[in-house]
Amino acid sequence: MRDTIELNNISHYFDTAAERIELFDNLSQTIGTGEILAIVGPSGAGKSSLLSIAAGLEDPEEGEVVFNVGGTPIDKMAMRANSGFIFQQFHLMPELDAIGNLALPLRLKGNKDAFDIAADWLGKIGLEKRAGHKPHQLSGGEQQRIAMARAFVSRPRFIFADEPTGNLDARTSETVIDLMFGFARETECGLVVVTHSNRLASLADKSLRLENGALEIAA
């Protein structure tokens, strides 16, 4: 049975001292596992907020979000245990080496084979020789490959990626996108990617454009 996230008629805005900024209004969308969904749109359109709401990190001002995992609805706290994230800024732990960062989610879940599994994943992303390197000794592309593998390593049901290639050059982006999509298909999770990259969006199963508060299928 497919696990899903249902966004039902959600609206979101935030208030500043001077005015209310409306992000989107009355959006509905279902995101499922085994599916790669890209969200594109201009800066400030509310893409990151939509991602945060879909991931259960924040609540919409109006509407409801329903998470279904294993055939039953779960709350957003339970949803968190079934999610993984990939960030634009990589966010690796500076004090841990590459394999330590990769093994971290498994260790947190009490997996005794964490380092063996992490070593396999390092091989998958071609960085087995960099296992003992700290983040500051790695290039941006290498850091993002580790950050991405880290999101997949514990096989969550959904992965949320916020501008995963935003800090990378075109060539490195290609590698990261290929790996990310490949892992998503291999693990059959649901992948939601917020991006400015048309190339990335074109490779997704579905691409949605958020603009002027409305969500529509991108061309």
Binding site: M77, R80, A81, N82, S83, G84, F85, F87, H91, M93, L104, P105, L108, K109, R150, A151, S154, P156
Partner: peptide, 16 residues
């Protein structure tokens, strides 16, 4: 804070 944010991004509960 940074550590906890990253831990929670892997699905670790805030309590843990």
């Amino acid at each position: 804070r940074y550590r906890i944010a990253i831990y929670t991004s892997f699905g670790t509960s805030l309590g843990k």
